[in-house]
Design a protein around this nucleic acid. Sequence first.
DNA 1: AACTTTGTACAGTAAAAACTGAACGTACTG
DNA 2: CAGTACGTTCAGTTTTTACTGTACAAAGTT
Lengths: 223, 223
Amino acid sequence: MLCYIHLYILKKSGSLIKDYFIFVGKLMKYCKVNFTFMDVNSYMDGKEQLERVRERVIETIAKNMNLYGITDSIGRLYGMLYFHNQPMTLDEMKEELGMSKTSMSTSVRTLMDLKMVEKVWKKGTRKDLYLAEEDWHQTFIDFFSIKWRTGISMNIAAMTKSIIELERLEKSEEIDEEVRSAAKVDITKMKAALSYYEWLNRLVDSFESEEIFDFIPKNKEEL
Amino acid sequence: MLCYIHLYILKKSGSLIKDYFIFVGKLMKYCKVNFTFMDVNSYMDGKEQLERVRERVIETIAKNMNLYGITDSIGRLYGMLYFHNQPMTLDEMKEELGMSKTSMSTSVRTLMDLKMVEKVWKKGTRKDLYLAEEDWHQTFIDFFSIKWRTGISMNIAAMTKSIIELERLEKSEEIDEEVRSAAKVDITKMKAALSYYEWLNRLVDSFESEEIFDFIPKNKEEL
DNA sequence: AACTTTGTACAGTAAAAACTGAACGTACTG
DNA sequence: CAGTACGTTCAGTTTTTACTGTACAAAGTT
């Protein structure tokens, strides 16, 4: 009997290759085995290869977004939407990622809050359609503006209030010298912090006004 | 019988105030109650007040760092170190924050990795001493350099590799038109992404070289 | 009006992360 | 050389977060 066995082995998985050799070893006890090593790519048709490249890139994008405090799942959803050139419905996403519709709903909302995805309207369908924001420079700007602004202003408020309180304390005559000098040091530190937050605010201003691109142009060639 | 009851009520906790009135209501059934509302601050001595201000600010700092993906505990540790003007040992931190020494050890290491805390050496003690980095501009720069660089270069590598693969696929004559045009679109998207990562890299360059401060000066008055 | 279709709230579950205490290794001390 | 003082590793526990399925509300369709 003649029998062909084709084994596709993923390069990255060393253990799989080991298992494959063990398996072939067992096989050789019972059969006559001929080996042929071939480039897997030549077996894959274009569509399959395209799919594989996409998935790798999506995974990289997700891993990167993870760095910014975004879940892997949400990152993968964004990556998927980025390469899916049509707007997608929740059900399609669910199908594509094999997750629950609830998850898709909340994830897509998170992405909308970050302005990384927008809802689009299309005649004839009752389903909501979502499209990935393609301009990553814009995404970057929105992301940090949204994330930082609130934090900055809250911190500035807290610092300002605290400085005022400590200055009152420092001027008070009822406290002992030790506390007074400690207050002085704290005031200095808080003023330094305040100055930093004001700087950060101006940095975010330059993001929002896109003036940052005058300083760091989008394309290397410019300037 | 004459009895004084002093209740210190925290402003921020609405529920506490409600509970207080319920309690007083019950009390009035059995006793004659006189109210006196006083400013809590006048009861606190300077040291206490200083402590309270510090804690509030530390909490704000922690909450802010949380935004950048740093745990509350680690944020609080940093904030505490920032206001503690001497270098601290692990045991002192443990004592101050009421956490385990193990936690202090790992947290302080995280902060060291982010260059937010440095180990200092002092003659006569065998314990490790840690000091908070005070320049937040510097902290900002280090934080993003450390966090972003790896991610960026990994992404650039992945994108570059994928673009090459897709370009080979696109030129191949064996694939059908549909796949070819899809590959073309993907290549465009990946090139756009690549361009973004290069931009981000240049932005981080400007952080590390401190050229960013030419564009956004540390002090508002400059320029 | 009843029946669909669609998105989301909510409660429960699974998975991940933070935190701890005991045990261990290393380096200093007598 | 024991004996002690530190910091860290590791296994186990608690807390938090992510995810799912059911139930429900809103809007559309018959």
